[in-house]
Design a protein around this nucleic acid. Structure first.
Lengths: 115, 115
DNA sequence: CCTATATATTACTGTATAGTTGTTTAGTTG
DNA sequence: CAACTAAACAACTATACAGTAATATATAGG
């Protein structure tokens, strides 16, 4: 297991990247991009976000390395840099499950899920 | 690979948890707790945060399942729920490295690190 | 050059939240 | 019970940032 020193600077960098994922609409953008690269206009259609708003989110995701850009004529194509994000989300989802289980156990309720 | 449906509700839950990690001082708290459970007072000493401020951060971390609480007399002991956080941080740190490499390559600079 | 389209940028507003101060609640000890 | 300590809570301020509207910067085609 890697042991990287947790300097304040590093904590800041890591926190910045978590913050990028702390916004549902950005997670949505990334999830939409999972299908493949898309232009801003296509992303506007897919996400229902305003163009300016989406553009700002894309700048942020790009600045932090979550997406890549490719310009072609009038269009700019955005794509996922890699699939790390979904690995991160999977861990978080696993935590959600564990949380639910803990809560259930604390309340003395079985693992039965609501239909 | 798990394929969990990304409903808006789930995105919100996941984003909330990323947001909890989007604050350097909370990462610091979690990192300090890696050594073992600590009381609030001990955490105040370790982190240098104000008591009220720290308490609020702990409430948040507890509400989202990152830490557990155990009351004993006048003291409340907080501890990590699990080590997921550090797995998440490791992935983020890996991304930082990849980012640096991408930047370096883009600038035509070698992998030589600054002393 | 003029017009149209795609994306980015700027300026603004509202909301969320980190930090602080002061107070409150709970538990302990005399 | 009174005095003390640990932790939580409430109220406030300051800052960051998501969303929006208006504008600017490409790039393409006539």
């Amino acid at each position: 297991m890697r042991r990287i020193a947790l300097t304040p600077e590093l904590l800041e960098l890591v926190a910045d990247r978590f913050r990028a994922l702390a916004e549902p609409v950005r997670l949505r953008i990334l999830s939409v991009l999972r299908a493949g690269e898309l232009t801003v206009t296509e992303l506007v259609e897919e996400t229902g976000l305003g163009q300016a708003n989406l553009s700002k989110h894309l700048q942020l995701l790009h600045a932090l390395g979550f997406v890549t850009r490719r310009k072609e004529g009038l269009h700019v194509y955005y794509a996922l840099t890699d699939d790390d994000v979904f690995e991160l989300c999977d861990i978080m989802c696993g935590r959600l499950g564990a949380e639910a289980r803990r809560q259930g156990r604390a309340l003395g309720v079985g693992a039965r899920a609501r239909a």
